[in-house]
Nucleic acid binder design. Structure first.
Lengths: 217, 217
DNA sequence: TTGTGAAAGTTATAACTTTCACAAATTGAA
DNA sequence: TTCAATTTGTGAAAGTTATAACTTTCACAA
């Protein structure tokens, strides 16, 4: 079957694909080379038919009676999500969170490469976090131009977030990952902005606990 | 109108409430004391009627012709989510990410209080991160019992995650916030587990960029 | 070579969500 | 006091998503 290009794929499907990817990676590291839709569904807290439907939508990646090959499926999902090529990203705000993010192994797993960090603190400038050198914030704009950076990760104090986003050049930057407390609309200057609130899941847990729900993830 | 207790509230609604909360907090800090459903919807990248419906579902918090009062609405949503009372949580794994999380202001904003951290590294034990002292991992279990800890945040290396979760006492712990690369089913031993993958949003951005979608958040 | 079991792929339907459109309510100005 | 401008709250319709049930295909063993 051909790769789907006509039907509109919802964001929910894409988010599930990232879960499948993570769960398949875990299973692969544990030495598995085949996984069934049922196993994937149980690990991800879903129904097995939605796993089959999601995957079948992009092409028939499974073997009937056997399941899905871990290595092949990883490659396929990576391709669907555009994770098959290494992407350079930069970080703005080299504080605790920024440092943790650069060192977070999950980014390298999906081919994201932090090539530089930017900060206003003279103490930090010139140091290295992971493989990324810390530059003064003024150099962000020329750096983006010079290296054709398409993705920026934002971990500055909330008060500085808006100014930095306003100043990004939409001719280069296509996506912004915003870890600050400010909430941005999904499109700013033609750039995709994704807001991440680390406390959000804890708020959801709080609600689940309060109401003794049986569902999560 | 009375607070809804009969109809089932979906997780999607709860997640949106957390967005509203964050966006209302931003507006409040900017000096606003009233907000319309339209404004909230634009900041959150939604349709205005879904904002009204979500809020109306729990009670009529708005004033026709005027909008929603920032202070009242914050209090109401906090109450719905169970964020109106201070909750003690502990962190397991005092590395970069753990440190960043304890210091992340977003948790305090919603009344989560990190009272202790646990680690195996003798270098870290005895030190203090924020207001949390770092204890040896062996003391986690008795600490949870002694302080009746209901929520655990997990930022250990992936290889240790399963063992720690297995060892948590479901008599006390009701929720686990998992930042490791391991993916847990939503229920483990009767505890809610929420998996957070910091790379997930970047993967979604990757897909959006690859397919030039117009939608985000 | 054939039969069997297992699990993918597919379809139809049920369940849920979002949107639209409008009545009701409130404020503030004339 | 009335009128116009707003904006909430809500029922009905449209759209979307998930689920269950079914059909097909494959691998393996006899």
């Amino acid at each position: 079957m051909e790769l789907n290009t006509t039907t509109k794929i919802s964001e929910a499907v894409i988010r599930r694909l990232t879960d499948y990817l993570r769960c398949i990676r875990c299973a692969g590291e544990a030495g598995r080379d085949m996984l069934t839709s049922l196993e994937i569904s149980e690990r991800c807290g879903l129904n097995a038919s939605i796993v089959r439907k999601d995957l079948a939508q992009f092409g028939a990646y499974g073997v009937k009676g056997m399941g899905y090959n871990v290595r092949d499926l990883t490659r396929q999902i990576n391709k669907i999500l555009g994770l098959d090529k290494l992407k350079d990203v930069v970080l703005v705000g080299a504080g605790h969170l920024g440092t943790a993010i650069i060192r977070y192994p999950g980014f390298a797993d999906v081919n994201f490469n932090f090539i530089a960090a930017f900060d206003t603190d003279p103490e930090k400038i010139g140091k290295t976090i992971g493989y990324a050198k810390v530059y003064p914030l003024e150099e962000l704009k020329p750096f983006i131009r010079k290296h054709a950076i398409q993705i920026v990760v934002l971990t500055v104090p909330s008060s500085e977030a808006q100014a930095i986003v306003n100043d990004l050049d939409p001719g280069y930057v296509k996506g912004v990952l915003n870890f600050t407390a400010v909430i941005f609309p999904p499109k700013q200057n033609n750039m995709f902005v994704h807001n991440i609130d680390l406390a959000k899941e804890l708020e959801v847990i709080s609600y689940c606990m309060k109401n003794c729900l049986s569902q999560g993830s």
